[in-house]
Amino acid sequence: MFSFFNRNKKSKDLAKSRLKLVLTQDRLNCSTEMLEMMKNDILKVIAQYVDFDESEMDIQIAQSFSERDGKPVLTANIPVKALRKVAR
């Protein structure tokens, strides 16, 4: 009988999970447009040091929170083929 009641998720848990989601976006205050611009700029810089096949290049910027202090974190995954010899 009690399992029947437990199946209904408590409304405060719903509130909490919705808050966490909305605050992730709020704290970053970072639009998808801006993320795209960031991605392009990062590519430009990386191209000076690293060999990469642009068709295979896939930068993903993930938004999350630091486990230590709860502050937002941007993470970019950049697959690298080979380091370019910097002759400058």
Partner: peptide, 10 residues
Amino acid sequence: KRGDMMNLDD
């Protein structure tokens, strides 16, 4: 107590 309001820890 009913789980319908966030508590201080939440």
